[in-house]
Design a protein around this nucleic acid. Structure first.
Lengths: 110, 110
DNA sequence: TTCATAACTTACCTCGACGTAAGCGACTGA
DNA sequence: TCAGTCGCTTACGTCGAGGTAAGTTATGAA
């Protein structure tokens, strides 16, 4: 089932944060910009997350052979289209997370 | 950010499959029914997944003290509301997964 | 008195996600 | 000659998700 694969991908720790940040940055940004835009991410994880996104066709990597090197990442149409259902989840979380919290508290109280 | 927590939850291997299956079964089902409805899941994982869903208020667990025991799980309104954005992801995967596959193939070919 | 039943729990193990820290390559400016 | 810059990669260690298999509980049926 493709849904499972999709959820495995976007369910990891950084993927969604990176795509959302890239979108917020105007759809195109350098490695170091993303590093700053996603607080707490390490270079290792940002690099591997972007590599996966690139492989999946959700972003495009463009290397400018300068020194020091410049690399820009751009969100693709496919990547942008994923933002819509993602936003649905974001909205759900905003609207209902408090209720989940309460359920947890009640449950743990017993 | 609550979205991260939400994604961690539903991004695991079984949660979404269990909720979707429970819904397909009419919103209410026994442990063994779910076991059959979610192929490949072990009792251990089904048990812990349901425990989490219960704690989060997405399903309700009802125990009938018979022998052998009967336990029924019912999806809550909160749980049902989560199905909507989830369906958005399902639809996206259905519509776009082929494209992701192609991107991967092209990428790997190089 | 042994068996089967439903719904678990427990013990044990593996494997990969993730974190941290350091190194690297090619060039520029001081 | 040396440090600084950017975008990485490599090495190493931890931790927890998840798999497998077996045990548990109470009772009625054979």
């Amino acid at each position: 089932m493709a849904v499972r694969e999709l959820l495995t991908k976007i369910g990891d720790k950084w993927t969604i944060l990176v795509i959302l940040s890239l979108d917020l940055l105007g759809g195109r940004a350098r490695f170091s910009e993303l590093e700053r835009a996603v607080p707490g991410i390490s270079q290792r994880m940002l690099s591997s997350t972007l590599k996966n996104l690139d492989r999946d066709g959700l972003v495009i990597r463009e290397l400018f052979p300068e020194v020091p090197p410049r690399v820009e990442y751009e969100i693709t149409a496919l990547g942008k289209s994923l933002l819509r259902p993602t936003q649905g989840l974001v909205d759900w979380a905003k609207a209902n997370w408090e209720q989940v919290r309460e359920a947890q508290s009640k449950h743990d109280a017993r």
